[in-house]
């Protein structure tokens, strides 16, 4: 038997369910749209994406957010497939953070 997957938390004990709603941010909506397009275009399939989330280290997973995992899994999968380059996306992320504006695309 293998240990259970990091994502397999059904039945675990946990604290209260958060009742506060949170609106999706604009970039999160864009990210979901981009993710959907990657699926529609056949660049990624759902099971590959799920695998990238399942591979996340337990402590990372425990402290991650829903949209954070989506972005992280997407980026890692696209790097793995050679669609984007790891150094390039890191450099561009820094560039955008330093400029502090959203006017990049």
């Amino acid at each position: 038997m293998v240990d259970k997957l990091t994502t397999d938390i059904g039945g675990d004990s946990a604290g209260p369910v958060p009742q506060e709603d949170r609106d999706q941010l604009f970039w999160e909506k864009q990210m979901i749209a981009a993710f959907n397009l990657l699926q529609v275009k056949g660049v990624v399939v759902t099971d590959e994406f799920r695998r990238t989330v399942e591979e996340m280290p337990a402590d990372y997973y425990a402290n991650s957010t829903f949209y954070g995992r989506r972005l992280d899994g997407m980026v890692r999968l696209l790097i793995e497939k050679g669609v984007i380059d790891a150094d390039t996306i890191e450099a561009r992320t820094r560039e955008i953070l330093e400029s502090g504006t959203r006017d990049h695309v």
Partner: peptide, 23 residues
């Protein structure tokens, strides 16, 4: 809202996907 690392990373990804002709 302040630009977060996550959003910046997505904007970087988005620009690369557009430049690469993926979408």
């Amino acid at each position: 809202l302040e630009l977060t690392e996550g959003e910046a990373r997505f904007l970087a990804l988005k620009s690369l996907l557009i430049e690469g002709g993926v979408m």
